[in-house]
């Protein structure tokens, strides 16, 4: 067990000591970026659990994230829901948010998994858009309408506490999902991705496996969603249900390598960093354009993502080693 987890432990150790270097001049801005990266990584892994493994490409992941975020924001923001004027503590609203993501997902999203391929993508996108519209239009005095709910309470303040919080969430999600992905359950899920009918024909109930993958995905999306909302301390429909967030999640997972958990995790950090890295060099829209170009080239030329690249590199080294052992050069 320890042996299998040793790379994770090393990664956790490295990430945990990073803030200790802040007094020595390690920039806090990088810590902040790592927080953003962690949340994107959580979302990407959550997407990967459902879509990367089973092949049901979800275009509505922000539905789960936004629903969780809105529930906790709505219950905990300063004015409370009125009347009566009740502001619930975060300890109550956070689990309620996650529960909402799971419940809403099971109620609306999961039944849609009856349809496959692009159809599922369309249904999930439709759910996201419908929720977006409903939040804007129905009782905007409660939901904040187009303007959203500003000034929410924070779970913890400051860069470094938030860093540890997001890191803890991220690693918990990553190791949990990674473990599932490498287990037999993960193998069945990947088999569903290849050919669902064949899996069904071999006597395995794909329904149960899909439900399990979906539940895991919804729980992690909900968890990420509630903490992310309180980290940003405001929520509004344009951000929660934007095509940009959706695209960030999908691109992270795709360029990281779908169905590998580790790939999407790396993809989340990579996207966050590349976008910030370009900021001083490319102005305004050029930066977003460059980002999109990088993404499309990755999708077209490296559909297997960084995970595939890493495998290539590993096999390259192995070939060299073998060759040098054989021929002595």
């Amino acid at each position: 067990m320890i042996r299998r987890l040793r790379w994770w432990l090393i990664a956790i150790a490295v990430m945990c000591v990073l803030p200790l270097f802040v007094p020595l001049g390690f920039p806090v801005s990088v810590i902040r970026l790592l927080v953003m990266g962690s949340y994107l990584a959580i979302f990407a892994m959550s997407w990967d659990m459902m879509s990367g493994h089973t092949g049901y490409i979800s275009f509505g992941h922000p539905f789960l994230i936004g629903l969780a975020g809105y529930v906790t924001a709505f219950l905990s923001h300063q004015e409370g829901f009125q009347p009566p004027h009740i502001v619930l503590p975060l300890a109550v609203t956070l689990p309620l948010g996650v529960a909402a993501a799971v419940g809403g997902g099971m109620l609306f999203f999961f039944p849609s998994m009856r349809v496959r391929g692009p159809y599922f993508a369309l249904v999930s996108l439709a759910f996201m858009e419908i929720l977006h519209r409903l939040i804007i239009a129905v009782r905007p005095e409660f939901t904040g309408g187009d303007r959203g709910l500003p000034n929410l309470p924070s779970v913890v303040m400051g860069a470094i506490p938030n860093y540890y919080l997001s890191l803890g969430l991220m690693f918990a999600t990553a190791i949990g999902l990674w473990y599932v992905s490498r287990s037999n359950v993960g193998n069945v899920l990947k088999a569903i991705r290849m050919d669902e009918d064949v899996v069904e024909a071999s006597g395995i109930s794909t329904y149960r496996f899909k439900r399990f993958a979906f539940l895991l995905s919804a729980v992690t999306a909900g968890l990420g969603g509630v903490f992310y909302t309180h980290y940003l301390a405001s929520i509004n429909p344009r951000r929660a249900f934007s095509a940009i967030l959706l695209l960030d999640i999908i691109i992270s997972a795709v360029i990281g390598g779908m169905g590998t958990i580790v790939g999407p995790m790396f993809g989340g950090y990579f996207l966050t960093f590349i976008l910030e890295y370009l900021r001083p060099y490319l102005f305004g829209q050029w930066r977003l354009l460059a980002y999109a170009l990088v993404a499309i080239f990755m999708v077209i030329y490296k559909p297997k993502g960084f995970y595939g690249i890493a495998q290539d590199v590993a096999s390259w080294f192995q070939t060299r080693k073998r060759r040098s052992a054989q021929y002595g050069y």
């Binding site: 695209l247 050029w286 354009l289 999109a292 499309i296 999708v299």
Partner: peptide, 23 residues
């Protein structure tokens, strides 16, 4: 033969067109 790639890449392409038009 890989609808997912087409799906994602054309979505990104639409976004690229948006950025170019903004510029």
């Amino acid at each position: 033969n890989d609808p997912t790639i087409v799906f994602v890449s054309t979505f990104i392409f639409a976004l690229i067109l948006e950025h170019v038009m903004t510029l």
